[in-house]
Design a protein around this nucleic acid. Structure first.
Length: 664
RNA sequence: GGGCCCGUAGUUCAACGGAUAGAAUGCGGGAUUGCGGAUCCUGUGAUCUGGGUUCAAUUCCCAGCGGGCUCACCA
């Protein structure tokens, strides 16, 4: 049975529209009882206290007393405001303030310790919540090098370090050396820099001159796109955006499943049971019908599979009638896929399906024979691999296989784009298969020896339904366009309730609905399996795409009402005094690092999590601190902050492939 | 059976080997007619088991248990 390249399609009982469980829109009626707000300790603090009382500490190393002593003895140093307005040179990538702060800290700690800064830098980390500091240097690693008690090292460094620049103070807490940063000073450079960089904030030039091919989506022709294809499409699209943002030349390639034995099946099925009129009217539906029919009949009549293989062989050998059928099916399917891609807002730089590589695949076979890396096994041609199952590259009927075409694809891509990396955004179930292909490619010399690591399988877990595995053939499947429609409809209903005056309601409902779908996928680590859950995808509250979009829209709303002609050129950040404001400034500074980590690990969920935490920080801020009604200086500073948040949220959402409407 | 992946509050997810494991959702309380309540505040509640490495393990290693995927002429 054909499998989808991008994932699995099967699914069990399909939910039909009306029966779908759905989370009701929450109507909140609020009681108007006025109450005096009592300030309470923060939740985290509470928890901590509770834990302390109820549970014995695990490690007795804790030196609370010492910590306290240190904190008391902490010396306040004069802060030196050094606002650093970034160079306004166009070509210059946006400044990465976090990186600069960290290297500043690393340098001063390094010179105090007499070690190179490069050794210190990677050790720097963010202290946990509740620690009153911005950066921490755990001294354990130094203890080994310096052969000293880490606590003494921390103390020693603390004494030697003279804070300067944005580093306001250092202090030692047990084996940790903690640094506090003057966020006002940082903000006065960072915020104008963000405003100036705009849609470029967070980008860099690290990928300049390098090419990355992203192989993603890859639906199978003649089958509808199910939610099984969602992950490859959404994750792949995001990875394209992220790499492009970092300066790479990206070739997003939709490696369509438009060749292979399943076409034999469809051709056979079409000749036996197909209705041309139905095909024209409702192509995917008809193709699916005959495809399912084929498998039902094949259960009974075992010769059907052979018939299909033979039909595929004729297609591969260039039989005209078969080819014209193939062409028809392909064109019809592509038209359908195009609609889905359009609503998802996904574009490709290349759409080179497997059929494109047919001639090259045949060359691959000849080459493999010539290079003497093949062996015969039961009339099929195989390549033997170390510690792996051999890879079949030609069937016993001399037809090509997925593997043959994949090898040809590697050859073609290396030759034509010489990419630094090729990312295969394909389900984890193909992990061992892809490793075989990569090894074979190395053996055939399509990649340089030792460069196998540049062929990266960006795998992801499988989508299943609450009722079990999906299965196209059994009709247990949820179609992607169905999901899009449901979510979009709900978004529209929500808008009608919450913002009836909104213009462009349809378009924004679409943006919000798609945002919900994409965010639900991209906000979790791709390697984990997911259960498709209507309730989750139809939820617009909490950790969801619409929450981020809403936050962005609120920021836009404030800026709109402020009627600023243009963002302030200068910023007096000393008016950003509140802890909530500082928290936002720090968050803003973390964006570039988050983006590059996401690219390194090919994990867009870093960005999703980031954007959520920034949105949350912002919501907490504007909930309690007035912007428009603040006094002039505060108002200006806060408006700049709001604007920087808006920009950063928008950029983050963009990297996830999610629109950021200004109203919703 | 061999190989690979996963195992965290009731549920769904986070957590560059570090200091008190964060959220969301659910359920229970709340938000002075201030910038849109798709928001905010607050209570509740978790690292599968057993060993090992480490100053330090949710994280790394081994074993077990549970789940998923995969083991050649499908893709």
């Amino acid at each position: 049975m054909p499998k989808k390249r991008s994932g699995k399609t099967s699914k069990k009982k399909s939910h039909t529209k009306a029966s779908k469980p759905r989370k009701p829109l929450r109507k909140k009626l609020h009681s108007k009882i006025s109450k005096v707000r009592v300030s309470k300790p923060r939740k985290a603090l509470r928890k901590k206290m509770h834990r302390k009382l109820s549970r014995p500490r695990k490690h007795v190393v804790s030196k609370k007393p010492e910590k306290r002593k240190k904190v008391e003895g902490r010396k306040k140093l004069p802060k030196q405001l050094q606002s650093r307005v970034p160079p306004s040179i166009e070509k210059q990538p946006p400044a990465d303030f976090l990186k600069e702060i960290k290297s500043g800290i690393a340098e001063s700690a390094a010179s105090a310790a007499g070690l190179p800064a490069e050794e210190i830098l990677p050790l720097l980390e963010k202290p946990p919540e509740g620690i009153d500091a911005d950066f921490a240097l755990p001294c354990f690693a130094l203890a080994r090098i310096l052969k000293k008690d880490p606590r003494l090292i921390a103390l020693d460094l603390y004494k030697k370090i003279t804070p300067s620049g944005v580093i306001m103070e250092a202090n030692n807490t047990g084996p940790y050396l903690n640094f506090s940063v003057d966020w006002n000073s940082v903000a006065s450079g960072l915020i104008p820099s963000i405003l100036q960089s705009g849609s470029k904030y967070g980008s860099s030039k690290t990928g300049e001159g390098k090419t990355v091919v992203v192989d993603f989506s890859a639906p199978n022709i003649a089958k509808p796109m199910s939610v099984g294809h969602m992950r490859s499409t959404i994750i792949g699209d995001s990875l394209c955006r992220i790499h492009r943002f970092l300066g790479y030349k990206v070739i997003g390639d939709n490696h369509l499943g438009d060749w292979g034995t399943q076409f034999g099946k469809i051709i056979v099925a079409y000749r036996k049971w197909g209705h041309p009129e139905r095909l024209d009217k409702n192509p995917i539906e008809e193709l699916l019908r005959i495809y399912v029919k084929f498998h039902e009949e094949a259960e009974i009549d075992k010769t059907l599979e052979d018939e299909a293989r033979a039909a595929f062989k004729r297609l591969e050998d260039g039989d005209k009638e078969s080819l014209s059928l193939w062409k028809k099916f392909t064109d019809l399917s592509l038209a359908e896929f195009g609609k889905v891609y359009k609503s998802l807002g996904v574009k490709f730089d290349a759409v080179l399906g497997e059929s494109f590589y047919l001639a090259m695949a045949k060359e691959v076979i000849d080459e493999a024979i010539k290079k003497k890396v093949t062996k015969w096994s039961q009339h099929a041609l195989i390549i033997e691999l170390e510690n792996q199952v051999p890879l079949i590259i030609r069937k016993s009927d001399e037809g090509t296989l997925y593997s043959t075409r994949d090898l040809a694809t590697i050859k073609y891509r290396m030759k034509n784009s010489s990419p630094e990396k090729i990312l295969y955004v394909i389900g984890s179930e193909q992990k061992s298969y892809l490793q075989q292909v990569f090894s074979a490619a190395e053996k055939l010399g399509y990649i340089k020896p030792g460069q196998k690591k540049n062929l990266v399988h960006v795998y992801f877990g499988m989508i299943s339904l609450p009722e079990g595995k999906m299965s196209t053939r059994k009709g247990r499947v949820i179609f992607l366009d169905h999901v899009i429609k449901e979510v979009t409809d709900l978004a529209e209903k929500t808008i009608i309730i919450k913002n009836p005056e909104l213009k462009n309601r349809k378009r924004i409902a679409q943006e919000v609905g798609i945002g919900a779908i994409k965010y639900a996928d991209l906000s979790r680590d791709r390697i984990k399996d997911v259960k498709f859950d209507w309730d989750e995808i139809l939820s617009f509250e909490g950790d969801t795409g619409p929450y981020i979009q809403y936050t962005h829209a609120r920021a836009c709303s404030i800026l709109r009402k402020a009627k600023l002609k243009r963002p302030p050129a200068k910023l007096n950040a000393s008016f950003l005094k509140d802890a909530k404001e500082k928290a936002i400034v720090r968050k803003l500074a973390e964006f570039p690092e988050t983006v590059s980590r996401a690219a390194e690990d090919c994990k867009p969920h870093y960005i999703a999590n980031y954007v959520f935490s920034l949105a949350t920080a912002f919501n907490e801020f504007y909930q309690s601190i007035p912007v428009l009604k603040a006094k002039k200086c505060s108002r200006e500073a806060r408006l700049a902050l709001v604007s920087a948040v808006k920009t950063t949220l928008k950029n983050g959402l963009f990297l996830l492939g999610i629109e950021a409407p200004e109203e919703m």
